[in-house]
C-alpha cells in the first residue's frame, strides 16, 4: 500500500437495531484509500458497501442504525470522535459523495443553480457574483453544455446523465480531498455510463482527488480504480491493486464474482452464477461467511473466521484455503 493514506477505516462495525434483530451490515471492515488513488469497493447487493460509505460521512439513519465501533481516520483524524458540528464542515468540503440515482438526489423544488450555489456558499466565503461564477465554472468542468441556461432549470428538465454531471459538479464544487461515489452509473444507460466514468477519470487526474468508488460492476471497477476491495456480507474478503485482483483473484468469492461477469474478450456460452444467496446478516453463518456457498470450504471454514492477511505483497485475502500452513486464528 502507498505510504500516505487519505482515509483509513479500522475495524468498522455498523449495525442496525431492528425488531427482527441486529443486522450487522458492516462488521469489522478494514479499508485504506491511498492519497490520490481510486479504490473500488465491490460486492453483491446487501454486502454493506453503501453502508460503509454512509458510515464514513456519518449519515447512517439513527435510529435504527448505529456505528458501534471502529475508527475512520481522515488524514489521521478520527471522524467518529468529532462533534456533529465539526463533522458538518467535513461533509461536502473534505469528503463529498455522489449517489446512485441522480433524478431523486436533486431537490425537485429548487433550480440547479440555487442547489449548486447553496453548497458553494455554505463552505466558502464570497460575494453573490463570485458564487455564481464559481457555479458556472464547476458546471463547465463537468462538461455541461450551455451552463448559464442550466443554472435556471429545474431537475425535472434534465436527463439522468446531465443530472449526474450536476451532482458531480456539486460534489467537486468545494474541492474535496475524497470523493465517495456510490454506484454513480448504475441508473444510467451504457453510453452515458461511459461518459460519466471518463469524466470522473479526468477529474481525478486533474484535481488529484482520491476516490472511493462503490460498484457491483467489475467492468466499471477496472476502468476507474487503481485498487479494489471485495466485500461480502459486511466484511472485506480481498484487497489488492486492480490488476492482480482481476488477473489473479485469491478469494473464492472474488473468483466467483469474476466468473459471473460478462467479458468481451472471451467466448462463453453462459455466465456462471454463485450458488445460494447473500446470507442473512442478523444471524450470519459461523466462521467464514462465504463457506455455505464456497466450493472449496473445509471444516475450519465453518468454525473459525479468517482475518485479512497479506498473502502476497499488497494482496490481502481473508481465506483459509488460500493460506499455507499458518493455521487459523480466532476473531
Amino acid at each position: 500500500m502507498a505510504d500516505s493514506n487519505i482515509l483509513e477505516i479500522i475495524d468498522l462495525r455498523t449495525h442496525f437495531f431492528t425488531d427482527e434483530g441486529v443486522v450487522k451490515a458492516v462488521d469489522g471492515v478494514n479499508l485504506t484509500v491511498p492519497e490520490g488513488e481510486s479504490v473500488g469497493l465491490v460486492g453483491e447487493s446487501g454486502s454493506g458497501k453503501s453502508m460503509t460509505a454512509f458510515s464514513i460521512l456519518r449519515l447512517i439513519p439513527d435510529p435504527p442504525g448505529k456505528i458501534v465501533s471502529g475508527q475512520i481516520l481522515l488524514r489521521g483524524q478520527d471522524l467518529l470522535k468529532l462533534p456533529e458540528r465539526q463533522m458538518r464542515s467535513i461533509r461536502g468540503k473534505k469528503i463529498s459523495m455522489i449517489f446512485q440515482e441522480p433524478s431523486t438526489s436533486m431537490n425537485p423544488s429548487f433550480t440547479i443553480g440555487s442547489q449548486i450555489e447553496e453548497a458553494i456558499r455554505f463552505h466558502q466565503e464570497g460575494r453573490a457574483s463570485d458564487v455564481r461564477e464559481k457555479a458556472l465554472a464547476v458546471l463547465r468542468s463537468v462538461k455541461i453544455p450551455d451552463p448559464r441556461r442550466i443554472l435556471s432549470q429545474y431537475p425535472h428538465e434534465l436527463s439522468g446523465g446531465m443530472l449526474q454531471r450536476v451532482m458531480i459538479a456539486i460534489a467537486i464544487s468545494c474541492e474535496p480531498d475524497l470523493l465517495i461515489c456510490d454506484e454513480p452509473t448504475t441508473a444510467l444507460d451504457v453510453s452515458t455510463q461511459a461518459q460519466i466514468i471518463t469524466l470522473l477519470n479526468e477529474l481525478r487526474s486533474q484535481r488529484k482527488t482520491s476516490f472511493l468508488f462503490i460498484t457491483h460492476d467489475l467492468g466499471v471497477l477496472s476502468w476507474i480504480c487503481t485498487y479494489a476491495a471485495v466485500m461480502y456480507a459486511g466484511k472485506i474478503v480481498e484487497y489488492a491493486d486492480i490488476r492482480s485482483l482481476i488477473r489473479t483473484p485469491r478469494h473464492p468469492y472474488t473468483r466467483a464474482l469474476i466468473g459471473a461477469s460478462p467479458r468481451l474478450d472471451c467466448d462463453r456460452d453462459a455466465l456462471s452464477s454463485i450458488p445460494g444467496t447473500v446470507p442473512n446478516l442478523i444471524e450470519p453463518p459461523a466462521g467464514c461467511r462465504f463457506h455455505p456457498r464456497c466450493g472449496r470450504a473445509e471444516t475450519i471454514c465453518s468454525s473459525q473466521t479468517p482475518s485479512l492477511k497479506e498473502e502476497e505483497r499488497g494482496h490481502w485475502v481473508a481465506c483459509f484455503t488460500e493460506r499455507n500452513g499458518d493455521g487459523a486464528e480466532n476473531a
Partner: peptide, 14 residues
Amino acid sequence: RENYIVAARSRGFP
C-alpha cells in the same frame, strides 16, 4: 426519507 435529503446532508448543511 427522500434521497435528496440524504444528499443535502452529505453536503454538510445543518
